[in-house]
Simulated assay, not measured.
Amino acid sequence: MGKLIYSMITSLDGYVTDAEGNFDWSVPGETLHQFVNDLMQSVGTYLYGRRMYETMVAWETLHTLPDQPPFMLEFANTWQATDKIVYSTSLGEVASKRTRIERTFDPDAVRTLKEDSELDITIDGPTLAAHAIRAGLVDQYELFIVPAIVGGGKRFFPDDVRVDLELLDERRFGSGVVYLSYGVANRTVAVP
């Protein structure tokens, strides 16, 4: 059975984008990128919302651009070889192989996907992840905390939930980024 992992880069104050939707402050360097590459080896499916998919689909053709560093090409190869499910009511078609569209987030279908999967599954994007967190589906949280305070924007965690966690792993990078991995100590409880 695969774990459902919510993994994203976030600012120190808990945002994945700033108030204008920018995330240029979060671009990983080579060491961090290689660490992510290694983590992604255990992943068999990416779950995306439309906006996150539209950001990530650039990896489908990155290998066609000249002078890409090996760590970027490695991630592109991994991304291309991994199944992707995009949850969107507005996306007409996908621009990558191994990708399908689902019109609604169905917690039971995700539970079945986890049960049937030999590899882990990531859920990427805070809006989509909020649905999985509220449904008690997320097994592990991986935060890459960037040493930046952006003061507002799209929050990493949703409001109105409580999840007790246990620290599984941590790592500091020379850039000041801190990686924290937490497992779920209990299942999600809605806060009134």
Rank of each mutant, 00 (worst) to 15 (best):
F173E: 03
T78H: 09
F157I: 09
D38Y: 10
P69M: 03
T112Y: 03
V150P: 02
Q80L: 13
W59E: 04
T82Q: 09
V163G: 08
P66I: 04
A19H: 04
R162L: 11
A190I: 08
D13K: 01
L180M: 14
V163Q: 15
Y53A: 07
M1F: 08
E118D: 15
M8Y: 05
E118A: 13
I85R: 02
E166P: 01
A190L: 13
L165C: 09
Y46R: 01
A130G: 12
D24L: 10
S26D: 04
T82G: 06
A135L: 09
E115C: 02
L32V: 15
P69G: 05
P192S: 12
L128G: 08
M1Y: 11
M56G: 06
A185W: 09
A148L: 07
E54Q: 11
A132F: 08
D18V: 01
L128C: 08
E60H: 12
Q34E: 14
L119E: 14
N186K: 10
G125C: 08
H131A: 09
V43P: 10
L113T: 12
V94G: 05
G152D: 11
L91N: 01
A58D: 03
E20I: 00
T188I: 01
A130W: 03
A76F: 07
L65C: 04
A76E: 02
S88F: 08
W79S: 11
T99F: 06
D24N: 14
L128E: 07
V86S: 03
E30A: 15
H63S: 14
R155W: 00
D83Y: 06
Q140S: 12
S181E: 11
L47Y: 05
S88D: 01
D83C: 06
F75H: 14
F71N: 06
E74F: 00
A95H: 13
G92Y: 07
Y141D: 03
V43D: 10
G29Y: 05
D83V: 03
P28D: 08
H33L: 11
T64G: 05
V36L: 12
G153Q: 07
V177F: 02
G44F: 05
V57I: 04
S117A: 10
D18L: 07
A190C: 00
L62R: 07
V16C: 04
R155I: 02
H33A: 14
E102A: 13
V191S: 04
V57Q: 07
L165K: 04
L137Y: 12
V36S: 11
F157K: 06
V161M: 07
K97N: 11
Q68H: 06
K154I: 14
K114Y: 10
L113R: 13
E54N: 11
P66M: 04
A190N: 04
Y179H: 15
G125V: 13
D38V: 14
S90C: 01
Y87D: 00
M52T: 15
I121T: 11
Q41S: 13
D83L: 10
V110S: 06
T10F: 04
R187M: 05
Y6C: 01
S90P: 02
T112K: 15
R103I: 05
N22I: 00
S88V: 03
V161Y: 02
K114Q: 14
V138F: 03
E93F: 05
Y6R: 00
E115D: 13
V184M: 12
H63E: 13
T82H: 06
G183L: 05
F23C: 03
T104L: 09
E93P: 00
A95F: 09
V177Q: 00
